[in-house]
């Protein structure tokens, strides 16, 4: 079983204050740390587990700048055999353009695969669309929101898809196929700094995005804006003890705490 896994280096913005530059031209990420996209971490883990059990190889692929090599090393440390970087220089916002680039790359380089994994979404743009577009333009069956892979057979896989409210559906999909992996599907293994250092001895191949058909972007960002302010909360301020006292007062007032 050969599995291609896409992994992306994303800005870790959870605890960062983001600033929009100029008249809304860009989001300033110059002071923000970067990390592997959470969803891709789960995807790499899932692919490696399948290959460890059934044989085959995992190839990790990243689209991005040279810095993205770091998520490839990470994937190799987790058990991927190869790491391919498609050096795109700039960010491709349009999931369509990204999917076209991936298809063109796989075709031209004749990369063999049985299953393609993508994360359900990436933490930065949260499009959640690359896997679906890719499946369609490659003429492959597709499933998103995969929270469990129950069986991997020669010509099909049986997976569980996450729906809403705790419900799941089990579906059968013929291979080759594209699956988008949901967070929480497994417990990704710990990757040590030593492991990543060792992984850097495995050669990662670099390809130039310009060598492949990227397709024209169908959507564009006209402007970046901050979220519209709603009512907002009444902020409790003061010394820690004072703030906590106020909080307990609210709980008492609401009748949930003595």
């Amino acid at each position: 079983m050969n599995i291609l896994v896409f992994t992306k280096r994303v800005a870790a913005t959870q605890e960062e204050e983001l600033r929009i530059t100029g008249e809304g031209q860009a989001v300033d990420l110059s002071k923000v740390p970067f990390k592997v996209n959470d969803w891709d971490n789960y995807s790499v883990e899932e692919a490696v587990r399948i290959v460890e059990k059934q044989g085959g190889a995992v190839t990790a692929i990243s689209i991005g700048d040279a810095e993205s090599d770091e998520v490839l090393r990470r994937a190799i440390a987790m058990g991927a055999k190869d790491g391919f970087l498609i050096d795109s220089g700039q960010v491709l916002h349009d999931p369509f353009a990204r999917s076209e680039l991936i298809r063109s790359f796989i075709d031209k380089e004749k990369v063999p695969f049985d299953i393609i994994f993508t994360g359900v979404q990436s933490e930065d743009d949260q499009f959640g669309a690359v896997g679906g577009i890719l499946g369609a333009i490659m003429g492959l069956p597709y499933s998103s929101m995969v929270v469990g892979i129950d069986s991997v057979e020669k010509d099909h896989v049986v997976v569980r898809r996450e729906l809403e409210g705790g419900l799941q559906e089990r579906v059968k999909i013929a291979t080759p196929c594209v699956l988008s992996i949901q967070s929480g599907i497994n417990e990704p293994r710990y990757v040590s700094i030593m492991g990543i250092r060792k992984a850097s001895k495995v050669e990662r191949k670099v390809f130039k995005a310009a060598d492949y058909a990227a397709g024209t972007a169908k959507i564009e960002v006209v402007k970046w804006v901050y979220p519209a302010k709603k009512g907002g909360a009444t902020m409790l301020a003061g010394e820690l003890a004072d703030v906590c006292g106020q909080l307990l007062g609210i709980l008492k007032e609401k009748g949930v705490c003595q």
């Binding site: 679906g132 369609a136 996450e162 729906l163 169908k218």
Partner: peptide
């Protein structure tokens, strides 16, 4: 914007070569 809605939207966009914007809130 749901498990099945997003899945079908992306696939449809790919099939027909249509532009796609997900999670539209305004």
């Amino acid at each position: 914007q749901s498990s099945s809605g997003t899945e079908a939207a992306a696939y449809t966009a790919g099939l027909y070569g249509f532009p796609v914007i997900t999670d539209v809130s305004a």
